[in-house]
């Protein structure tokens, strides 16, 4: 189980401190699929970065009992943009002490980016980058995956593959997923954390949570 306890984080801005997260607590049990919903800038990525240990919270702690946690699998971090896809795969397999050729053949097969695997990552489209980083994280094999907005970048075929992989094979894993894709969240998650302006609510009924998010939180942006 991973315990997220009283996490707060503020960022220094030119107009003073911006309290992004206020006292957030929830647990991730084995097999849990936690969805994080929130407007742009609500703190989804910040929360995911804190759970991974990449970002230090101002207060609160993350406790993990016997569960390995992935890096924040998103479009921003994790890959070196001047290295080729292949060199990135090599680098990350060495970092996590995995066999390169095994990881490589899995990623090559799953990501389907063809010859681009030998080109620098900076030349990739966001869809290709999402495929590579997601496949790579699956190949490394963690207990809990932190996934930050990459489902939305893939095309229909990639989404189908992800769903197959996530629902069938990797079923013994936990996920914390930040996404705008309400449809995906509804199918995939068993718990939601809805972030709004520093505050949060934890919802066990995903359908209700998504409706609440669409009707109450997104509405305030429109009006």
């Amino acid at each position: 189980m991973i315990q997220i306890k009283n996490i707060s984080k503020a960022f220094k801005t030119r107009f003073g401190f911006h309290q992004t997260l206020k006292n957030i607590s929830f647990d991730v049990h084995p097999l849990d699929r936690v969805g994080i919903l929130g407007k742009n800038g609500a703190g989804k990525s910040t929360l995911i970065n804190i759970i991974s240990g990449h970002l230090k919270p101002d207060s609160g702690i993350i406790k993990s009992a016997n569960m390995t946690i992935s890096w924040p699998v998103g479009l921003v971090g994790g890959l070196h943009h001047r290295l080729t896809g292949k060199d990135n795969i090599r680098l990350i397999s060495y970092l996590y002490d995995k066999d390169f050729s095994e990881v490589f053949s899995y990623v090559e097969n799953f990501a389907e980016i063809g010859n681009y695997i030998n080109e620098p990552v900076q030349t990739y489209s966001s869809g290709m980058r999402g495929r590579l980083v997601f496949a790579l994280s699956l190949a490394i094999d963690f207990d809990c995956y932190l996934i930050d907005e990459i489902m939305a970048t893939g095309d229909a075929r990639f989404k189908e593959k992800c769903q197959m992989e996530l629902f069938d094979k990797k079923i013994k894993k936990s996920f914390v997923v930040a996404s705008h894709d309400a449809n995906f969240m509804e199918n995939f998650c068993n718990k939601l954390i809805i972030l709004d302006d520093g505050d949060y609510i934890e919802v066990e009924n995903v359908k209700q949570g998504i409706n609440f998010y669409l009707n109450n939180i997104l509405k305030t942006v429109d009006s």
Partner: peptide, 12 residues
């Protein structure tokens, strides 16, 4: 700066 993205892996 060029290595910033690798810091996402917590052993780096």
């Amino acid at each position: 700066e060029p290595n910033r993205t690798l810091l996402f892996h917590k052993m780096v």
